[in-house]
Write a protein that binds this DNA or RNA. Structure first.
Length: 403
DNA sequence: GGATCCCGCCACCCG
DNA sequence: CGGGTGGCGGGATCC
């Protein structure tokens, strides 16, 4: 009982009031702020904590306590990080840190897988279920119309012996969802920007059931948050409508944060390490009287600005792929003619003249569902438009690397 | 009013 | 069985 008292966790952390600069910071301490507890922020801190030299093991307990959050949240982060190779499960509660350098390889694999199963598998043939190499997870969770036996309301009988239940678990994991989400971008040139709603529809065999959709979208938000903090994607909005959506940025080299106390300091300000523990006691409750405090906390993403030395400037400029110690990594072998994104490496435009028109027929995944076909067509059109514009404006892009 | 998405209950899995 | 995992979705927040 008494042990429930959050008081015991009180840390002598320098008053969170350091939240800073902005306006009336003198506002009341508490004030539950959802933003300060976002998965994205947590992930940023997680990375700041482990993405450094010397790190090779990551313990969940350790992470949870250091970051001042419940374990549950760590699982979320770890699962998506693992899906892109940054981490690998070693044993229970134990992960091996692979680092950002493992991302290229992981993406490459996803891309290949994607071309193979996620897309082709659909219409080429029911896939050869026979040789199940195991190798690695996957098993795209595609067609499965999710339990057709109107599972909606299982009601009753917990039929523990539900066979489909077994891998159904894995099938719905955050990790797999993350991989499939990423595949949407790297396996299809047509999708450069996508709203989570559309992503959910595409990833789900079909959109129907509103409830399923909502849940899927929630998960995608979770994923998007951590991928954003890794700078693999970025939030924007669709070109046409004003709908919010995400853009694939891809991996642009190790952030190499040589960060030391500097960044950490900054981090602690964004999401005071120990402070949140204190927050635990302030969990959201509508009952917070006089909730007039505008928790003006600077989001100050470590965008552009950035310290002189710690060049973590996530400049996604154009210099990409090309030489890369071991095997250049390039996105897009799936791309029609080349394998380069006009955006990223507008270096080779010679092959850019490929037959855009022919594209959809060759690279469009064929979903049985009409809705999805339309959806994809929509993306395809948008892409064509965008592509031709880019091509026009940069008939012959000079070399990106001016070094 | 939607877009977001935190929180934590509780089903699962595995030793 | 017990404890580590981690789906899932209610409902609070943000904008």
């Amino acid at each position: 009982m008494s042990d429930l008292s959050p008081e015991r966790f009180k840390l002598a952390v320098t008053s969170p009031s350091s939240i800073p600069e902005s306006s009336s910071a003198l506002q009341l301490h508490h004030s539950y702020s959802r933003k300060q507890k976002s998965l994205g922020l947590l992930c940023t801190n997680f990375l700041a904590l482990y993405n450094r030299e010397g790190i090779e093991m990551v313990g969940l307990d350790d992470a949870a306590s250091k970051l001042g959050v419940e374990r549950r949240r760590i699982y979320d982060i770890v699962n998506v990080l693992e899906s892109v190779g940054v981490l690998t499960r070693r044993a229970k509660n134990q992960y091996t840190w692979k680092g950002f350098s493992a991302i290229p390889g992981a993406l490459k694999e996803l891309q290949e897988e994607g071309v193979k199963d996620t897309f082709h598998r659909f219409y080429v043939n029911e896939n050869v279920k026979g040789s199940d190499d195991e190798d690695d997870d996957e098993e795209s969770s595609q067609p499965h119309s999710s339990s057709q036996t109107d599972s909606s309301k299982p009601g009753s009988l917990p039929q523990s012996s539900d066979p489909s239940k077994i891998d159904n678990r894995r099938e719905k994991s955050l990790g797999l969802l993350t991989q499939n989400f990423i595949k949407l971008f790297i396996c299809s040139e047509a999708i450069r920007i996508i709203s989570l709603d559309d992503a959910a529809k595409l990833l789900l065999g079909d959109a129907h059931n509103t409830s399923i959709m909502r849940t899927k979208v929630r998960r995608l938000y979770d994923i998007a948050n951590v991928l954003s903090s890794m700078n693999l994607i970025e939030k924007t909005h669709t070109l046409d409508s004003r709908k919010p959506a995400f853009k694939w940025l891809g991996y642009n080299g190790e952030p190499t944060f040589t960060l030391s106390s500097d960044l950490l300091q900054l981090e602690s300000r964004k999401r005071a390490f120990g402070t949140d523990i204190t927050n635990v006691n302030v969990k959201r409750s509508k009952s917070s009287s006089s909730s007039q405090e505008n928790a003006t906390e600077r989001r100050l993403k470590m965008k552009k600005h950035s310290t002189p030395e710690s060049s973590y400037n996530k400049s996604f400029d154009v210099h990409e792929s090309r030489h890369g110690s071991r095997g250049g990594y390039h996105f897009g072998p799936f791309a029609p003619g080349t394998g380069t994104y006009p955006t990223a490496g507008l270096e080779d435009n010679s092959r850019r003249a490929f037959d855009v028109e022919n594209l959809d027929s060759d690279y469009r995944p064929s979903y049985q569902n009409q809705v999805l076909k339309d959806l994809f067509s929509h993306y395809m059109d948008a892409w064509k438009t965008w592509f031709s514009e880019v091509t026009q404006e940069n008939p012959l892009p000079n070399t990106s690397q001016h070094r």
